[in-house]
Simulated assay, not measured.
Amino acid sequence: MEIIIGAIVAGIVLGWLDVFNYKWRLWLNRISTGCLFVMLLCLGAKIGCDSGLLAQIKTLGVQSLVLGGSAILGTMAMFMVVAKILAPDFKREEEE
């Protein structure tokens, strides 16, 4: 885990210092996308091999649906509240 955190910190520092030119950034972006794909593939394979997890897939699916739906509805509700507080006259300006 220390290696992963060290690589992330090194990437942040090198990006912040603007060490690489555009060509290098393009290649590094492609490499990081490929590594992310391999990591997700390995994660999916590990989940697929876990029989205990697969036995509870329906329960996990329902829980994730409820969690995701709650997050979306909560975000929409907070947006409505903030929009009413910060822009109460926005609707009137549109109508004029």
Rank of each mutant, 00 (worst) to 15 (best):
M1T: 14
M1R: 14
M1C: 15
M1V: 15
E2K: 06
I3P: 03
I3R: 15
I3W: 03
I3L: 11
I4C: 05
I4R: 10
I4Q: 11
I4K: 07
G6R: 12
G6T: 11
A7T: 07
I8Q: 01
I8W: 01
V9I: 15
A10M: 11
A10T: 08
I12H: 03
V13C: 02
V13D: 07
L14R: 08
G15I: 09
D18F: 01
V19K: 14
F20P: 01
N21Y: 10
K23P: 05
K23Q: 14
K23R: 13
W24N: 14
W24G: 00
R25T: 11
L26Y: 15
L28E: 02
L28A: 07
N29W: 11
R30W: 09
R30L: 10
S32Y: 00
S32F: 02
T33M: 08
G34H: 02
G34F: 03
C35F: 10
L36P: 00
F37Y: 07
F37R: 06
V38A: 13
V38Q: 05
V38R: 07
L41W: 11
L41Q: 09
L41N: 04
C42H: 02
L43A: 12
L43G: 10
G44N: 08
G44Q: 02
A45S: 13
A45M: 13
A45F: 08
K46H: 10
I47V: 12
I47L: 10
I47D: 01
I47T: 06
G48S: 05
C49V: 15
D50T: 08
G52Q: 03
G52M: 00
L53P: 02
L54C: 03
L54K: 06
A55W: 00
A55F: 01
I57H: 01
T59I: 07
T59D: 11
G61T: 09
V62A: 04
V62N: 05
V62P: 01
Q63T: 04
V66Y: 00
V66Q: 05
L67Y: 03
L67P: 01
G68F: 01
G69M: 06
A71W: 12
A71F: 11
A71I: 15
I72G: 04
L73M: 11
L73I: 15
G74V: 04
G74C: 03
G74Y: 09
T75H: 04
T75V: 07
T75Y: 10
M76E: 07
A77G: 00
M78W: 13
M78Q: 09
M78N: 15
F79Y: 12
F79N: 10
F79C: 03
V81R: 04
A83Y: 06
K84P: 05
K84H: 13
K84S: 15
K84W: 14
K84V: 08
I85Q: 14
I85T: 12
I85N: 09
L86D: 09
A87C: 13
P88K: 12
P88R: 06
D89L: 11
F90C: 05
F90Y: 12
F90K: 15
F90E: 12
K91A: 14
K91D: 12
K91I: 14
R92M: 01
R92S: 08
R92P: 00
E94L: 13
E94V: 11
E94R: 06
E96P: 00
E96S: 12
E96H: 10
E96V: 04
E96F: 08
